[in-house]
Write a protein that binds this DNA or RNA. Structure first.
Length: 490
RNA sequence: GCGACGGUCGUCCAGUUUGGUCUAGGACAUCAGAUUGCCAAUCUGGUAACCCGGGUUCAAAUCCCGGCCGUCGCACCA
């Protein structure tokens, strides 16, 4: 039984995964959401697996940069120029439109991305364009920048909240490469918040104004994109590639030989990404890499694959995989007047690295995992089971006394005390045993340890499995090892 | 941002049409007690809400205006 958005939303609100920010105030703006206790735990575990399966596996370097950055950064990155849309507003009914698109649609005239406001105005006048809704006259052309400005210090020096975490990586690149004795290709990773003043934030975690990204920027020599010994590790990994009409399943090796992906470096990282999402609990059979067409790509990307998963509200983009070439380093080099070239030790030549990025949306990923793991068990009174991987579950194990007498509760409390420093545990004695099992499985707890009368005689407990409802009896002294193993730890 | 519709306990809903026993009701969830003792059991009791601001009126959950939020459509989406 497949979940829908409303069911996931209800579970998230009722069980403390996430909820609207500032909700006790009526002027709370849209597009801001908080993680509750269960959500933040799950998010932390998501990031831990990201570190393990991408950052450590590939020997990347992680940094943690500032969220407020100087204006120059965004002049260099192109956000000051490109992150704005020209908007025209009807004087009569107030409807607003993207000026460039509207003019092109109505007149066929090509409107350049950087066309000045005066020129746009002239075009409207020339063709006598009016509002399609009420035939009213258009007012001034305005530019809406989606970055949040901030004023630094008493003089309110112009700066911005970063609209993407990667800019920190680019401006830090030279120092990190030097001090960490970098070699190309080199990955720099970062988890952090980004901020975009969305016009219409919607659907809770899916379209936020303040959101988490986990970003990886691979700095590479563009002449050596097929020199990738590590590629052997992933050559049999299956990629599902979508060309706009159908999904083709191929191994990483086949993707290259058939020309579906451009080179080994990009293909290697697409494969790492899909392996990560498989381990995190996404049903990868319901995912695809969408090869973006020319007009869909961001202004800085020359090759772009969006990693998308199928949900009840359609295909949802979780990761943008962009080959940004030297767009960013070139921009920062010329704006800052710093030389950002590095020596590629393999060729002993100076090179301005190109960049391939994996830009993951954490919040959207959390939503997608919840939806893919949500299961309504029709065999057992429609019990709701969140079938999260053990290493992602907010609570790993519930510790339950069968009843609160004959010392069973004290015994269970002692077991909880012994385990809680190493695992996320939850002690619960309230309500019938069946009710307590149901509450645990609803937040994805894979195991429930029950203390019964037999425990008092031989120090064994039952371990109940969330998905099968089967129980096994094991020694209390083996519990630690048992849970350790269940987490897949070494 | 525009348009349509909507906003009542944690959740879902009743009450708004026709202002007045609404001191706002129910179910689920939750808490306490009793009973039971391995899969949402039963009984008793409790906690808990009219989105915010203004207006009309003797009287507003109910009517009017503004704001905020939500759903859908358009537009936008690095």
């Amino acid at each position: 039984m497949v979940a829908n958005y409303d069911e996931v939303m209800k579970l998230a609100l009722e069980r403390g995964f996430y909820f609207p920010s500032c909700e006790i105030y009526s002027d709370a703006p849209a597009g801001f959401w908080e993680y509750g206790p269960r959500g933040v735990n799950m998010k932390n575990k998501f990031i831990e697996l990201w570190r393990r399966e991408l950052v450590r596996r590939d020997d990347m370097l992680e940094i943690d940069g500032c969220q407020i950055m100087s204006k120059s950064v965004f002049v260099a990155s192109g956000h000051i120029g490109n992150f704005t849309d020209p908007v025209i507003k009807c004087r009569k009914c107030g409807s607003s439109f993207r000026a460039d698109r509207y003019i092109t649609e109505k007149t066929g005239e090509n409107v350049l991305e950087r066309m000045a406001e005066e020129e746009i105005k002239a075009l409207i006048k020339k063709h006598n364009l009016r509002c399609p809704n009420c035939n009213g006259e258009f007012g001034e052309v305005s530019k809406f920048n989606m970055m949040f400005p901030v004023g630094i210090g008493p003089a309110a020096e112009e700066a911005y909240l970063r609209p993407e975490t990667c800019q920190t990586i680019f401006v830090d690149f030279a120092r990190v490469f030097k001090t960490m004795r970098g070699r190309l290709p080199m990955g720099i990773a970062q988890v952090g918040k980004s901020f975009r003043n969305e016009i219409a934030p919607r659907q809770s975690l899916l379209r936020l104004r303040e959101f988490y990204q986990a970003e990886i920027e691979i700095f590479c020599n563009p002449d050596r994109l097929n020199e990738m010994p590590k590629f052997e590790e992933v050559k049999n990994t299956v990629l599902r590639l979508f060309d706009g009409s159908s999904i083709i399943e191929v191994t990483a090796e086949e993707a290259i030989s058939k020309g579906l992906t451009p080179n080994k470096l990009i293909t290697y990282y697409l494969a790492l990404l899909i392996e990560f999402y498989d381990k995190i609990g996404i049903d990868v059979k319901r995912s695809r890499f969408r090869n973006l067409s020319v007009d869909e790509k961001a202004f800085y990307a020359s090759v772009a694959f969006d990693f998308e998963v199928e949900t009840s509200i359609g295909w949802l983009e979780l990761v943008a995989c962009n080959y940004r070439s030297d767009y960013d380093l070139k921009g920062h080099a010329s704006t800052s007047k710093q030389n950002l070239e590095v020596l590629d030790s393999a060729t002993q030549s100076k090179v301005l690295p190109h960049v391939f990025e994996l830009s993951m949306g954490i919040d959207r990923s959390i939503y997608a995992i919840l939806e893919h793991c949500y299961y309504k068990d029709e065999q057992h009174d429609d019990r709701v089971v969140l079938r999260l991987k053990p290493y992602l579950a907010p609570i790993l194990v519930g510790i339950l006394p069968l009843m609160t007498k004959d010392g069973l509760d004290q015994k269970a409390r002692r077991i909880n005390s012994e385990l809680k420093y190493d695992f996320d545990t939850f002690y619960d004695e309230s309500g019938s045993i069946g009710r307590r099992y149901r509450r645990l499985e609803e937040i994805g707890t894979p195991f429930a340890v029950t203390v019964d009368n037999t425990t008092m005689q031989d120090d064994t407990v039952t371990v109940r499995h969330r998905d099968t409802m089967q129980q096994e009896r094991i020694n209390i002294s083996d519990l630690h090892q048992y849970l350790h193993k269940a987490l897949g730890r070494r």
